[in-house]
Design a protein around this nucleic acid. Structure first.
Lengths: 139, 139
DNA sequence: GCCGTATATTCTCATGGAGGTATATGCGCG
DNA sequence: CGCGCATATACCTCCATGAGAATATACGGC
């Protein structure tokens, strides 16, 4: 009954915050505090929307030390894949989403758990790079 | 602010009945009583969903004698167009939708207001073809 | 074990929307 | 004009879910 899935996918997509989250995830995995920074929304909002997306299989999550890293499913279903592509097309030129992308880029290189470095080097750890370096994270 | 639109489009799409309606409309204009037949839902349900879709610009309606004929917008926005295509792709193989298509075909030729004949011939009118000939319509 | 940071869960309140029944409107006919 | 059919709207009830505040849990460092 994949068609039930389809409605569920659409339910996920009919909220602007979730659209923005998915759009960001298209560009790579992210942790919650980065979503906070980029979306400029309170933690609870982000967290709840992520939980929603997770419940319905739209995103996956794994823990890395203190951070939860969210990403698009490694093997999304056919429908989800189509929908995410379509979303991307629809969103390409929208100011809000472009703004998000911009803020995301501003953060990107500061993260020590970004894909290439999910397992931070021992050196990095000792250097204190355990922190979440995103702007708002005063950790 | 086309992005508001996008969320609205998704809101329309997150209901199975509306998905089925849109899928049917992809195959051509339809009147309410045919939706009833094909979807096998009560009139009020169909009518309300159509009203919803109409309010948000997802479908257009025109009156033809006693019937309201609904169709996809002549010039849908870019987003809507993309979404409808995507929907089509997602839905292609789903039993529910295939069932709808089948029932639709069974009705099709009987309608005197179908696109080719929106203005029924005088002869047809006199022959009593004013009626809505769909299965359930005991008119 | 305690603390701080990161994230999740719980609760309350408010809203939207789906389904159903009853009723209203619009149209053509006689 | 009154009737019947096609369709729309109003009203009600129920449920999902969004926002926000407060609280709970998880993890690493000391």
């Amino acid at each position: 009954m994949a068609f039930t899935n389809l409605v569920q996918i659409y339910r996920c997509l009919c909220d602007m915050t979730r659209l923005r989250i998915l759009h960001l995830l298209k560009q790579g995995p992210l942790c919650v505090c980065h979503f906070q920074d980029v979306l400029q929304l309170p933690q609870v909002a982000v967290s709840k929307h992520l939980a929603y997306l997770r419940r319905t299989g739209m995103v996956e999550a794994r823990r890395h030390e203190q951070w939860m890293i969210y990403s698009l499913p490694a093997s999304p279903g056919r429908e989800l894949d189509l929908q995410l592509r379509c979303l991307q097309d629809c969103v390409q030129t929208e100011p809000v989403f472009r703004g998000d992308s911009r803020r995301l880029k501003a953060l990107g290189p500061k993260c020590n758990w970004i894909p290439q470095a999910v397992e931070p080097s021992r050196a990095a750890k000792q250097a204190g790079s355990r922190k979440c370096h995103s702007a708002q994270c005063t950790a």
